[in-house]
């Protein structure tokens, strides 16, 4: 039996999970100023100065073509570490950490709000469904560009 912990965040009406081992920190928006970078794909919100490190911010709503929402107090930046580089994900809010056993996973439904390619599986706790995001695939990018243009 293998247990894994996931950071749960919300985007629109759904909840998504990120493997906790990939997450290096979670930041409130007001502590950081996002600088727009010209000529980047639309889903790039900009860059932030994270203690001297330049970190690009990916707007997940825009990335998954979910309707736009103004940034507010609940908005969080989840910083993930991929290939030893930090990348920030802009999400609606972060709620809690949840533990799943792999047996609890079910395959992703075919029709859902976002592209099911990026979902590793669906974790269930009672009635609650958490879509587990395949972050490596999401950020591994050849098809990112098509979406951005």
């Amino acid at each position: 039996m293998t247990e894994k912990q996931y950071v749960v965040f919300s985007l629109g009406s759904e909840e998504y999970g990120l493997n906790i081992l990939k997450v290096s920190e979670i930041n409130r928006l007001k502590e950081l100023e996002i600088t727009n970078v010209p000529q980047t794909p639309s889903y790039i919100e900009g860059i932030i100065n994270l203690r001297g490190d330049v970190v690009p911010i990916l707007n997940l709503r825009r990335r998954f073509a979910i309707q736009h929402k103004e940034l507010d107090k609940q908005t969080r930046i989840v910083v993930v570490k991929i290939d030893s580089k930090n990348i920030g994900l802009l999400v609606d809010s972060v709620s809690h950490v949840v533990t799943f056993e792999e047996e609890e996973f079910s395959p992703p439904p075919e029709e859902m709000a976002i592209d099911s390619n990026y979902i590793m599986g669906v974790g269930k706790k009672g009635k609650r469904m958490v879509f587990l995001l395949d972050i490596d695939k999401l950020l591994n990018t050849s098809d990112n560009l098509k979406r951005g243009k």
Partner: peptide, 11 residues
């Protein structure tokens, strides 16, 4: 070309 921010011309 294949990176997250794409090709940024001029920067």
């Amino acid at each position: 070309r294949d990176k997250l921010l794409g090709n940024i011309k001029g920067i």
